[in-house]
Amino acid sequence: MNFSALEVSKEWHLQEILFCLAINPNNDQLWFGSSDSKIYQQSLSNEDSERISYGESGHSSYVTGMVIAGDTLISCGYDKKLIWWDTNSHEPIRNIAAHDKWIRRICVTPDGRLFSVGDDMQCRVWDLKSGDLIASFSDHAATTPHHFPSMLYALALSDDGSSLATGDRVGHVAIWDSHSFEKRAEIKTPDLYTWDPKQRRHSIGGIRCLSFSPDGTKMAVGGMGKVGNIDHLDGASRIEIFEIGTGERLQMIEDAKHKGLVEQLRWSPDGKFIVSAGGDHKGFIAFHETETGKQVHVVEHSGHIHGLHVNFQTETMFTAAHQRLAKWSFGQPKETAETTPTS
């Protein structure tokens, strides 16, 4: 993959903030979740086609996560709900009040289980077909050391589905057996949380994303380094890579030129590179060597990136960002970007 050739090949401008996306490569469809509480379906084979809106009886707040399982789309949001959708009829199949606070992320295992994390600091396991709750567990304190509500932002599943990781606002990562729900290990990343005890007396930051290496032995943790002025996303974007077995930190990658939160991380299939995306007022996508921490390439984007899909086989990427949806390619001829507002 020629990282340095990365460029936007198609961009859609919208009014809303886009937080997440999912792609079904089999039918060439893309879905994204929005701040207007809706889910939109976009054809990729006909990029200028009118997108389909899901949502009149769906979420009532920001849609923050989604996964595809066959013909079913499962979404989560700040309304504390999990919703199963039929992607053919675009109608909800099941609607569950799943958490007591905001749901941040969901993921699905190959054997048909759905995991969700929310600001009630619980990781919950659901039967993908029935929607039944299988388990609920946590290793994360409800409040920060400074007596404020904590948040459970991050969730990741290993490629083989055997391990799960959860990460919170104060920099605590727990690694779990995804079948027994026993804690296997933990990692501390305190520098991703900034508490300002004097000037502003509140905090910012947190672990915003986690990603297992393809062999499941390493964990990449994304967020923002220490911040001077916590009124803004003014800290360097930061990635830390750990050996899970020993807890040893292998890499600490900070980029002061590209400030803000690392919202998404993806390892390359060979484990040699890691892709990160996020931003402050604006966005970035960066590529680093995992062995050395060396930055291979970085691209700036006009909107803070919240959602990322990378397909290393087709060498395409999609990003969901602040008022932007973009398709990226590595060295492909650039199409003329056109705008299609949602309303």
Binding site: F148, P149, M151, Q199, R200, R201, H202, S203, I204, G206, I230, D231, H232, L233, D234, D280
Partner: peptide, 21 residues
């Protein structure tokens, strides 16, 4: 005085903390 509510970034997280207080 309860400072500092100047949430140019991460307004919603900031208000989750400060409003709770």
């Amino acid at each position: 005085a309860r400072a500092w509510w100047d949430s140019h970034g991460q307004n919603f997280e900031t208000h989750q903390e400060l409003c709770a207080d």
